[in-house]
Design a protein around this nucleic acid. Structure first.
Lengths: 178, 178
DNA sequence: TTTACTATACCGACCGGACGGTATATGGCA
DNA sequence: TGCCATATACCGTCCGGTCGGTATAGTAAA
């Protein structure tokens, strides 16, 4: 786990700050301190705060894409294969709801909504993909919407279900997609 | 629609700013300008920015509660009555996904996550209520989660379905709750 | 004259970003 | 091998602007 390049370390730090202290605590200084270097050092790797957040968003997208591929491969063929993949990705701790990622959305929307543009594009792509193999697109869309709700609730630390209850919801979602 | 008291006008202004310009543009000055008074005027009515956001959150809660009551009365008796109420509320333009409300969440979470406390409490209440009349709590929870996803996607201006597609999703949700 | 409300002026803190400088590593070249 | 040149990575400091909040003076109605 030795960080070969500092860039990733800084992104990690920024994510951690958003997650543990809230978006408003994400400053270049704070990120620098957590990543154990100076603000100047951070600005060497990212030419602006927007740039840093762009990188956070990109990492989130890449992470989701990777999980999608991984789960899609495991998922049996048939209708709703992509929708089921989305469900499994959403509940994966490495995914958008998990610790590492997730805060990127919050950071982007608060600092500069334009930074969401890559997400918008990806989202459209994912939606299209899900609908492409869903006999009932409305049902698939509803389930995917619920996955967004899950991410959302984690972001806001809303009192969502305990682990066991979440597992039941996940199973329920998969049940609907058979 | 004559504003009887200035407080409501200021809250309206704050909501509008979050919605139209983004959270980071919500400053006391900006809110004052939109509400057509001075910053001093705003601080007369709200002793701090946190106080203003608390009021925004409270309005959102009240609005949702009111809609819940309204739709619950209209909804036929039987299982999943509360879950169906949540669905109708979520899609109501006066509700959390609509123009007036919604941005309150964003404002709270970015400025000071503690301001979400009232939401947490309300949320727990709503969840409990939904589960109380749902034969399959996991299904009801899933659908409610999707409603949160809907709100979330609107907040982030994600490329969600067009009106007609959303209507189908709404009908799909109600279909599952029969 | 008190109350309710508004406007102006200002302070202090914070933050993003710019900049000059520094240490190390690498590489050509004589 | 010794010497200079350059690139990479990073530090510390400073500046300009913004924003929340305070203090205070003013005004209009009751």
């Amino acid at each position: 786990m030795s960080p070969p390049n500092t860039r990733e370390t800084i992104i990690d730090a920024a994510m951690a700050i958003v997650r543990e202290q809230g978006v408003n605590k994400l400053t270049l200084d704070a990120a620098a301190k957590v990543a154990k270097l100076s603000k100047g050092g951070v600005l060497y790797h990212f030419k602006s705060k927007d740039d840093l957040i762009r990188a956070m968003v990109q990492r989130m997208i890449d992470s989701c894409d990777a999980l999608h591929l991984e789960y899609y491969a495991q998922e049996p063929e048939g209708p709703y294969r992509w929708a089921r993949t989305v469900v499994r990705t959403a509940f994966d701790p490495r995914g958008p709801s998990g610790d590492p990622v997730g805060g990127a959305l919050l950071a982007a929307v608060t600092v500069n909504p334009d930074l969401l543009a890559p997400i918008h594009a990806k989202f459209a792509e994912w939606i299209e993909r899900v609908e492409s193999d869903s006999p009932n697109p409305a049902l698939a869309a509803l389930v995917c919407m619920a996955m967004d709700g899950y991410v959302f609730e984690r972001m806001l630390k809303l009192p969502l279900c305990n682990d066991e209850s979440c597992e039941r919801i996940k199973q329920q979602a998969l049940e609907l997609l058979k």
